[in-house]
Write a protein that binds this DNA or RNA. Structure first.
Length: 152
DNA sequence: GCCAACGTTGGC
DNA sequence: GCCAACGTTGGC
């Protein structure tokens, strides 16, 4: 069982947007970074849990809990000329980009803010807090996971 | 809006 | 393979 953190800009897609979807499930598409792609394709498993993180907003931080409900599959948006994520260079027989399906398990009662996360020693190695980190999808260690959950 | 930090592109 | 130029991310 793996633990993850998945970033989203709430102006584009927020925890409340997800909560409003029937079944609270969505395809996590549009990831266009090879490191993140490799994790979505190879490492995500059904039943894995993930924090949903809001970035580029007034209060960046962890806002809820997701569960992986479908393992990596070809991201349909790469083949859709109407999509902002369209990638004409991707071969349908060897797709370049992958996504998973996630379901919202729970929206937190409050935002566990980035600044707050930085204050805690047990999180000093959290990938999110490392210099220059830009991954939109990243692993979280079990100890870090448990610690962040205890903050809510 | 600024800017640091990183990824990607493409000429050579 | 090198590396300069450019684009993107994301906190502030």
């Amino acid at each position: 069982m793996n633990y993850w953190l998945m970033k989203s800009e709430p102006s584009a897609f927020s925890v409340d947007d997800l909560a409003a979807i029937p079944g609270k499930t969505t395809g996590w598409d549009g990831v266009r970074n090879y490191q993140a792609r490799n994790m979505l394709r190879d490492d995500f498993r059904v039943g894995d849990l993930a924090f949903l993180y809001h970035s580029s907003c007034e209060l960046p931080g962890v806002v809820g809990l997701l569960k992986v409900v479908r393992r990596g599959y070809a991201d349909p948006s790469q083949f859709d000329p109407g999509s902002e994520y369209f990638d004409p260079g991707s071969d349908p027989h060897a797709p370049r980009w992958f996504c998973v399906d996630v379901k919202l398990k729970r929206k937190f009662g409050r935002v566990i803010g980035l600044e707050e996360l930085r204050r805690h020693k047990p999180l000093r190695n959290l990938r999110l807090l490392q210099r220059g980190n830009r991954l939109s999808v990243m692993p979280v260690a079990k100890a870090e996971w448990d610690f962040i959950l205890s903050l809510e």
